[in-house]
Design a protein around this nucleic acid. Structure first.
Length: 485
RNA sequence: GGCCCCAUCGUCUAAUGGUUAGGACGACAGGUUCUCAGCCUGUUAAUCCGGGUUCAAGUCCCGGUGGGGUCACCA
């Protein structure tokens, strides 16, 4: 038997970074075991449908480096892979269950159900459940209602007094009393299936063998198990993954605390490789001290046994930032520059570089590479290489203590630098002579060099000073120093 | 509230019943004789509580406590 896994997102918004983690695990399991990974779109909620969400979802999944063997755009023999195109299938199976006495028509209006729940809550009932008002309708009654085109749903008939055993690969065996389960609606009055019917039918029809999904689905797993049994189908293997949480919160990740959509992180300038490396550890680890992983290495080392049992996994943005810096530093200069260029192009941000040629840009990048945490920082970190900075005299004075002294420092160095030949305008030479003069004039290294740095760059944070001077060139360096005076 | 699940440094986590409870991020300190970043070195800091079982418990059992998930014609 070959392994078949799937990811089944809903186009109700942007694809969440946590969903990407879940997708990654499903994908990796299929890749590792030589099976297939299927992508299925669960668009059964017409109310919450977001225009264009499917296309954006597929795109971002690809950008993170994943593909699918069957699903939208690639097809497959179990299609269609979009639930809204499979409505007749769900209806057929729902009716089959009615036929078998495992489900029933319900004509209750939503207002009645709402009242019922309210009443049950008031009575402090342990669970709110449908009261099976329509369970024993006569055949004639049902037919009359259907003929009169009264809206209906099809409900699952949960068996009484049963203990439903659920085997989870991560959590082990669990049992749920069936009496706590509601007679779940399977087919909605608009003819669409609910999630519960949709997944079970499709996972069966598409021959899914392993279901790795978020922990929030654990509580509805007994319903799914019951459905498999009602149909007489073989159950897949379940594994419920930790959900993602903010570091400072015990609650699920939320937009209010930062980015949550997979695409947001790309936009913020994170590399897919770094993101993948980061999210693979959200609920899994190899049990060794290795933590820098390529996707291929992950596929090799991934196993369900190593997935954590804990409920939640914290999304540590600081660690993500560290990973990203690491990947940026490890990317060869030329490739990194390409990535920076395509990031700017993709997100419509103008690059300030380019006017002095590609060689110059690469030299600039080599100086700031290890300072970059995200691709989006490139402009900010390098603007003074391309444009004259704005120099604030109060700030300029701050490094030596007073403005006159700062100007004196600049004048003196200007006098020295003007006499250095273009040939000798090299990092080491500049460094040597600048230090010699420092001793001669009796300045502290910090006051002199910070003054020069700020005068030329307009910022106090730069790569080593003489690397910068060397790259900017004699003429421009001197002109900048003069203009400050 | 019912049901179900979980519990190790601030964070992510490792540890066939036997280790000085390990690593990484963060923070802090020192070094790299100009800043920032990077790099190197070091420091900090954890088994929720209470009972058992055992020669031996982070690990097994029971009970608390805490946290979470879920109880829709949403997924």
């Amino acid at each position: 038997m070959t392994i078949r896994t799937r990811m089944a997102p809903s186009p109700t918004g942007e694809f969440h970074i946590g969903s990407m983690r879940t997708l990654m695990y499903n994908w990796a399991l299929a890749r590792k075991l030589g099976g297939q990974f299927i992508l299925r779109i669960e668009d059964t909620d017409k109310e919450r449908y977001v225009e264009g969400a499917v296309e954006r979802m597929l795109l971002v999944i690809k950008k993170y480096g994943f593909d699918w063997d069957e699903g939208p755009q690639v097809g497959g023999k179990y299609g269609p892979y979009v639930q809204s195109e499979r409505l007749d299938i769900y209806k057929k199976y729902a009716l089959e269950l009615v036929e078998k006495g495992k489900a029933y028509f319900c004509f209750c209006a939503e207002e009645r159900l709402e009242k019922l729940r309210e009443q049950q809550r008031k009575e402090k009932k342990p669970v709110t459940k449908y009261d099976r008002h329509c369970l024993d309708l006569s055949k004639e009654g049902i037919e009359g209602n259907l003929k009169g085109e009264k809206p209906y749903v099809i409900r699952m008939k949960i068996p009484d007094d049963e203990i439903v055993e659920v085997a989870d690969l991560i959590l082990g065996k669990m049992s749920f009393p069936s009496n706590d389960l509601d007679d779940q609606i399977l087919l909605k009055s608009d003819g669409f299936p609910t999630y519960h019917l949709g997944v079970v039918v499709d996972d069966h029809l598409m021959e899914i063998t392993h279901i790795l999904r978020g922990r929030e689905w654990l509580a509805s797993t007994p319903k799914h198990v019951l459905l498999y049994r009602a149909f007489g189908w073989k159950e897949p293997v379940f594994a419920h993954l930790p959900v993602l949480r903010e570091v400072d919160s015990t609650k699920k990740m939320s937009k209010r605390l930062g980015d949550v959509a997979a695409s947001d992180f790309l936009k913020a300038g994170y590399l897919p490789e770094a993101l993948d490396n980061f999210i693979m550890f959200l609920g899994w680890n190899p049990g060794t001290e290795k933590e820098v992983y390529t996707i291929d290495e992950f596929v090799k080392d991934f196993s369900i046994e190593k997935i954590q049992k804990s409920e939640m996994s914290a999304f540590d943005r600081q660690k993500l930032s560290w990973f990203n810096g690491l990947y940026i530093r490890n990317t060869p200069l030329g490739r990194l520059f390409e990535k920076i260029e395509s990031w700017h192009k993709e997100f419509g941000v103008k690059m300030e570089c380019g006017k002095f040629g590609k060689d110059f840009d690469l030299k600039v990048l080599s100086l700031v590479q290890e300072r970059m945490k995200t691709l989006s920082e490139f402009n900010d970190l390098t603007s003074y290489f391309y444009n004259r900075p704005i120099v604030n005299s109060e700030k300029l004075a701050s490094f030596s203590g007073d403005l006159r002294k700062s100007k004196e420092i600049i004048e003196k160095y200007l006098g020295v630098y003007e006499h250095i030949s273009e040939d000798a305008w090299k990092k080491d030479d500049l460094d040597k002579i600048s230090h010699e003069k420092l001793l001669e004039w009796g300045y502290k290294p910090k006051e002199a060099f910070m003054t020069l740095r700020y005068a030329v760059c307009g910022t106090e944070f730069t790569p080593p000073l003489f690397d910068v001077f060397n790259l900017i060139g004699k003429k421009e360096t001197i002109e900048r120093l003069k203009s400050v005076l």
